[in-house]
Amino acid sequence: MAKLVKNGQGRTPELKEAVAALLPHVNAQKADFKPLVIANLLWAMAKLSDYSQEQTPEFIEAVAALLHCVNAQKDQFIPQQISNLLWAMAKLVDNGLERTPGLNEAVDALLPYVNAQKDQLNAQHIANLLWAMAKLVDYGQKRTPALNEAVATLLPHVNAQKDQFLPQHIANMLWAMAKLVDNGQEWTPEFKAAMAALLPHVNAQKANFKPQGIANLLWAMAKLGELVELNVFTSTFESLVYRISENPPLSRQDILISLWGVMVCCARLSLVSNANKNNVFEKHMDDLLTRLENTSLDNEKDRHIITMAASWLGRACPIVPHYRTTISEPQTFFRDQLQSCMPSLKIEEEKCLNSLPPVDLLLPDHNIIIEVQGP
């Protein structure tokens, strides 16, 4: 049923009814499930949840029963099943499933086997596993030694199998690597080598990325920042952003992360003498901002992105942002030291300029901003 839905089968009332009829039997017959059955069932439930399957009490109970089975039979799964299971758990969490102790235990139970079976992993396994680990970490999974070791195990395989990855794999892996960096991943030589191995394939396969993949790549390239050499960064961004300008169907969230990515690109290019290139990217930024007009933005972070883009482009800000202001001890200490050295110096704190996020200290008479420990 999950495979049928994935391949275009409508989620009819009859299909929903059939799924609902089967779910109670998962719990009832859990003692009879073999590893392949456990992996297939959890994959199916994750895939159905990706297509708006409601997480009913019966659904959640069935997932909990399967997670218990994963823990109990952890040493019997083959690489494909480990990949599918970790992907399924990450997808379920991404679709709103609570991170219960049972889920955490199932993840922890499988991670050591990623390292143990590393020589049997193919390109799809590697892409799914890296995506799953980044997604789980982003939802609060602890970066235990086992998880760090699993990531470290996968990175050399990215380099070794770089010619076998499909466009979706490449987009998912670069997104995963950027997300791991966002959550404290160290820039090890293996990490840098894996990233360097993937980047040439972005340009080479630019025509084959789906719109969501392009948005994720723009976000990832921006988040990876100076890990990516400037010329590679610029050429890759240029090839991707032109695909976005063709106005493919994008979700509001995809447009937002693309807008943020292009803005970071413009900020980075503003530091080098290449104004013409920067103007080209600003045109794309303007197009993306226009596509967001007349959309309601409830998320505070998304509203801030809109505000920053409008400020950069000199456009009227379509929303009034609200920022939380906090004055830290280091900020107070620094301000007091500065004032004691120069008693007549005018200092303003937590000041918003052009509707942008507040700066720590503003010296208005000197047109200077000081960030003590800001982003």
Rank of each mutant, 00 (worst) to 15 (best):
I214D: 02
K223C: 10
K162H: 00
K277T: 07
N159K: 00
C265N: 11
P189H: 06
S235M: 09
V181K: 07
A215I: 10
L180H: 12
A215Y: 09
P167L: 10
K206N: 14
E226P: 03
V202W: 11
I170G: 05
P200S: 05
L198I: 04
D254C: 12
P189T: 08
M177K: 12
G261Q: 09
Q253E: 12
A178Y: 10
Y242T: 14
E226W: 06
Q164G: 15
V202Y: 11
K192H: 03
V232Q: 13
C266V: 14
L198Q: 05
L217A: 06
I214N: 03
N278Y: 00
R252I: 03
L166Q: 12
E186S: 08
M173V: 06
L224W: 07
K192V: 05
D254E: 15
N208H: 15
V181R: 03
S235P: 01
L174T: 14
N247R: 15
A275V: 12
I170Y: 06
Q212T: 08
A171E: 09
S270G: 08
G213H: 12
N183D: 11
L227M: 13
Y242S: 11
F165D: 08
T188W: 01
F165I: 02
S270P: 04
K162I: 00
C265P: 06
S270I: 01
L224M: 05
V202C: 07
L271T: 10
A193E: 15
C265I: 07
E229F: 00
G225L: 08
Q205K: 08
T188Q: 04
V228G: 00
V262P: 03
P189I: 08
S239P: 04
P200E: 06
A171D: 08
A275L: 13
